[in-house]
Amino acid sequence: MISININTKSHVISLLGVTLHSRQPSRIEITGDFPAATCLSTSICLLVDEYNLPNQLTKMALPTLSKADLIALSETDVTQPIPKESIFAALATPPFLYIPGTFNTRDLGLLPLSSSSSSGKGRKVGIRPGLIYRSGGFFPNGGFNDAAKTQLANQLGIKKIFDIRSVREHSHAPDPEIAGVKNYWIAAEATEKEATVNLADFLEGKGERGYVKMYMDVLRGYEEVIGALLRSLLAASEDHQKPEPILFHCTAGRDRTGVVAGLLLSLAGVSEEDVEMDWMLSRIGTELAREQLLGFAMKGAGARSVESPGFENLVSLKRECWRAFVREVKRVYGGWEGYVRGVLGLSEGEVDRIGRVLRGE
């Protein structure tokens, strides 16, 4: 048992800033004004009082934010909290969705597109709403209960979940079994090795070199599950059936998930400007777990504090880093389609059909 005394009352979703080292589930008793909650050592524990997030999002007359508002909020320094009024309004604004027990959940088809995403030829651009979802991990002891499963499977109609995590992450917290939903996770050899981050790679500029290395490793290390996701979309076009909604995730729903989202949006014809915005929105989507994620990043990178050289660049989302990664994809593969053809082994015609499925054509 671990008891934590908290004397101040929370009026918003609250985050437990501790790390448990036991491999077994541990009960955490909260004394004061918080309810009890259960955490796994690898989970992010979300504590909700009577002023909980679901009530904030469903009972309050929250204004939805404009695209410009979302962009401005996504540029908030990661070391600083986003004001609660702003985060509630943002999470009530598409493309964000609220599912208890997870976070950073979005419908890629509801990403607000700019004029730069227009094909100019009358062809659809962008992913069809209700087809592709992205999120962070699922935490049963953080609220992912039967009601959340029903929301995911019945209300959103998700039929397949693709897990983009390492062997260690998956073994500690496998995806939940949900009736009518098939889980996909591939224990590729490259994912057997835990991702190591060298802060020296993030020292210069905004950390572009570190991000390029980290994200190119995602494309190489998770190619099997990425290929399985794309082939599931391709199968729908070959069978002339309506594609089934899918969700893909990693742990934070930020880096590995962001790379795959960038690939799918690009195949659907979305402009680089709007793909970049989707990546930046993870600053908002991860706010509910910001303190935990900073702690995990410090441990993984061997940083002594948030002031450690290179650490701020590692945990921040800067446009320059995504742009540097996209340039590297073009240099190495000739672009996203080149990666799909050259690495995943799909033909030009298959890539075109995947794009049509994504756009709902």
Rank of each mutant, 00 (worst) to 15 (best):
Y133G: 00
L346I: 11
G126F: 02
L265N: 04
L108G: 01
F202H: 06
F296L: 14
E85W: 13
P100G: 11
V48T: 08
G109H: 07
G205D: 10
L70W: 04
R209F: 00
E85A: 15
S86Y: 07
F88H: 15
L111V: 12
F162I: 08
G109T: 08
I132L: 09
K124I: 07
L247R: 06
S66H: 07
L199F: 06
I28Y: 08
G142K: 01
K159Q: 15
G109N: 07
L203V: 13
Q24G: 01
K149P: 12
G258M: 09
C321G: 03
I186E: 07
P95F: 05
F103P: 02
L91P: 00
R128W: 00
A36Y: 05
N145L: 05
R27F: 05
A147S: 13
T196M: 12
N145G: 02
F103N: 10
V351G: 03
K299A: 14
G253N: 08
Q80I: 13
G253R: 08
G227E: 01
H172T: 06
L57R: 05
P140F: 00
Y133C: 01
S347N: 06
R220G: 01
G360P: 02
S116T: 14
E291V: 15
A190Q: 15
R304H: 09
L203Y: 10
G338N: 02
D274L: 06
K160R: 15
L108Q: 05
A89P: 04
R106H: 03
L20P: 01
A261Y: 04
E337P: 01
A89T: 07
L267K: 04
P245E: 11
T105N: 00
G285T: 07
N198K: 13
H249E: 03
L108R: 07
S135C: 10
G334Q: 02
W279H: 15
I132W: 00
T42L: 00
K124F: 02
I82M: 10
M1N: 11
G143M: 08
V181S: 06
N5I: 09
V197H: 06
D33M: 06
M277G: 00
N154H: 14
V125S: 14
K149S: 12
A89M: 08
E208I: 05
R27T: 14
L317Y: 05
T191H: 01
L156T: 04
T93M: 13
F162A: 09
D274I: 06
R231A: 02
W336T: 12
M1I: 13
F144I: 09
H172W: 09
L110K: 15
D239E: 15
L40F: 12
E291K: 12
A190P: 02
I13R: 10
L293A: 01
G269E: 02
A61G: 03
T251C: 01
L247C: 04
E361D: 15
